[in-house]
Design a protein around this nucleic acid. Structure first.
Lengths: 196, 196
DNA sequence: GGTCCCATGTAACCGGTTACATGATTTA
DNA sequence: TAAATCATGTAACCGGTTACATGGGACC
């Protein structure tokens, strides 16, 4: 009797996210990945292949049951087991882990003095800002759609946060780039003063 | 002749962050972890033990040279090699990878309808908001310190972003919790209407 | 001079990534 | 019906995490 499968077997946070999609309805791992990309991908994401590993583990540990579909592909519909449903429900009510934010751009800005190349730093931030703007526009376009459906009430709240954060980021980027511009002009001026 | 060590050997983003600290001055892996915790930890973080693995790899691949210190502990000062310095400098000027944001709290809010326990959702968000408030206060207190030092100009910019993002988050949390409160009152009212 | 906590480091495991592979479907 | 693209899945590697271990000061 493998106690490996029967005991609590701590799940990774990503596994709970996986299970949460199955509270909607049974679906394949591929479906989960698709829904994930369209819904929570802005505050939770993994490589697409990851879902298959999770599926294997969760079946092994009894949180999920799988049902093979006919056809050449090894397609399997995943269902929550009672144990799986209990686990997600419990998780949903627990305090959340602190959020994690990774931004290469901020690290690079932090070390900009070391780089000693203001123009490159500026270019780098501009690219970041442009990407941000694109995302923001997409979010803003999506909002009316979510607001139209009562069942999307909570998703709309998360989208609202996304919009606010990306707006703040956009404003910051504009202000900061302006500052860098001033630095650049100052530097050019003083160089001219030195060489002229 | 191991070409493993001599060829380009793609570095992980975290390795560049590691190297960036060595552009300040030579230091031990432990120092790097300490500085990291005090500086960029809000937009780049890893487990503390991770620095030792990075050090080993970076030495192996010739980006870093190490110099043993006397004493019982196996303490080693790390220096950038010319190859290492070139690698960081180049990285600093390249476009940045898109930022990544992970928030369990947002996932849980997204699935709040499934949880069907508004009070638990509210508690969860309140905890998140309180943690956020604490961080924000710390950031705001730190700002004058950075502003006082000319060499902290770029770090101050990243701190500025941190403050703006956390303020936006705080406002969102207040608004959203108010909404949830209304829902709760509505629910209680209608239940009373039903049972009374 | 024992106890406790912080400093510093190692080792093993595992989740998640990158890379690859093949079935289905559209398009020309 | 060939080619290209999308759908679906597997396998291997590796970065990063958790857990553990020991040295060294602080404190009583």
């Amino acid at each position: 009797m493998s106690n490996r499968a029967s005991t609590a077997s701590k799940l990774a946070p990503g596994d709970f996210v996986f299970l949460a999609f199955l509270t909607w309805e049974p679906m394949t791992a591929y479906d989960i990945k698709k829904f994930m990309a369209e819904s929570v991908s802005n505050f939770w994401s993994t490589a697409h292949s990851q879902v298959y590993q999770q599926a294997r583990r969760l079946v092994r540990d009894g949180f999920v049951r799988e049902q093979a579909l006919p056809g050449a592909r090894r397609k399997r519909v995943l269902h929550l087991t009672p144990k799986g449903r209990r686990a997600v429900m419990h998780w949903l009510r627990q305090p959340a882990q602190p959020p994690q934010y990774f931004s290469e751009a901020m690290v690079k800005l932090f070390f900009a003095a070391q780089a000693g190349d203001l123009k490159a730093t500026k270019r780098m931030l501009e690219q970041d800002r442009d990407r941000n703007r694109g995302l923001l526009a997409g979010f803003e376009a999506l909002m009316p759609v979510l607001q139209a459906a009562e069942e999307d009430r909570y998703p709309a709240m998360t989208l609202d946060l996304g919009i606010r954060l990306h707006r703040a980021l956009a404003e910051w980027a504009d202000d900061t780039l302006r500052e860098l511009d001033q630095d650049l002009r100052r530097a050019k001026g003083s160089k001219k003063a030195l060489t002229g």
